[in-house]
Amino acid sequence: MAEPDYAQGLERLHALISGDLHEHIDPLSRPAIVGWGWFFQIVHQLYAVQRGHQDGHCGSGAPNRRSAFEHALSLFWLVDLGDDAVDILNRALQEDQKQLANLVKAAGLEQKVSEEAYQVLWGTIAESIPSHPEEGTRKISQLLKKYDLKELATYYCVESRFAHPTLSSAQMFFADRGETYELHQLPRFEEAIPCHQFCVQILFDSMHAFNRLMLGQPWSAALQEIAEEYGLTLPIYGDAQTPDA
């Protein structure tokens, strides 16, 4: 069986992202607004992966692939929890702002922060945001358990080694030959999954999730057709497992 033309699949998916897409967003829906931001974060991370592929630098795309994967998985979670997810994100932002405020103070940078930024920072900290029982599931490791994604958890573990300063990331550029080391200026190996195949699957999954946040779900028929043609598996929602504490 011939390998699907994933580059063509990407073109078909991108063609669905029309200039009038905002008309399908309810401006009063917090999940839809957050989903919009995350979806286009995914789109632009995948642009970077594709550009690296075009230039022959697939090995450099690990941080972009990892970020796209994390945002896609988080988008599934946002669809499932809706407004509760946004409440959890607001609480997480508040904790981040507290940490930032402490760092600004410790570094003596108060005078270098604009008045507007200062007000936003402390305004967020002053908000009263209750805790939520699903807060723990926001972490990627917990989401992988929540959706029982064992195969993708393995991929994520491997990819993460090349997105951070680890021995694995160093070994991309040298090989142990026993009594000596062979040094390289270009990566010895590239991506775990071919770039176009990775981009098609992540973009498809993300569009399937984001479609559920849009008014009228305008992509449903086209995504079903593309899934059948390229052998893509529709993401599973609603069967999430509660991970162990």
Rank of each mutant, 00 (worst) to 15 (best):
A2G: 07
A2K: 13
E3D: 09
P4K: 04
A7V: 08
Q8T: 08
L10F: 04
L10G: 11
R12P: 05
L13T: 04
L16A: 05
I17Q: 12
I17S: 03
S18Q: 10
S18N: 06
G19P: 00
H24E: 02
S29G: 02
S29T: 00
S29N: 03
V34P: 05
W38R: 15
F39R: 13
Y47T: 14
V49T: 12
R51N: 12
G56A: 06
H57P: 00
C58T: 14
G59W: 05
S60M: 13
G61H: 10
P63E: 03
R66W: 06
A68W: 03
F69C: 12
E70Y: 06
S74H: 12
F76A: 14
L78E: 01
D80S: 13
L81Y: 06
D83W: 01
D83H: 07
V86C: 13
L93S: 14
E95H: 13
L103G: 07
K105Y: 08
A107S: 11
L109H: 11
K112D: 10
V113L: 14
S114K: 06
Y118H: 15
L121S: 02
W122H: 15
W122C: 05
G123V: 01
T124P: 00
I125P: 05
E127S: 09
I129W: 01
I129L: 15
P130Q: 01
P130V: 02
P130I: 01
H132T: 03
P133R: 11
P133D: 04
K139P: 00
I140G: 01
Q142L: 06
D148N: 14
L149D: 02
L149K: 09
L152G: 00
Y155L: 13
C157F: 12
C157S: 14
V158F: 06
E159C: 09
R161C: 08
F162T: 05
H164W: 03
P165R: 07
S169P: 04
S169M: 07
Q171M: 15
F174A: 11
D176F: 06
T180N: 08
E182H: 11
E182L: 09
H184R: 08
L186Y: 08
P187N: 05
P187Y: 03
R188Y: 01
E190A: 09
E191R: 07
P194I: 02
Q197T: 07
F198G: 11
V200F: 05
L203Q: 14
L203T: 08
F204M: 08
F204C: 08
M214Y: 02
M214H: 00
L215A: 10
G216P: 02
Q224Y: 08
E225A: 15
I226D: 04
E228A: 15
G231N: 03
G231I: 02
L232F: 01
L232H: 04
P235K: 01
G238V: 00
D239N: 12
T242H: 10
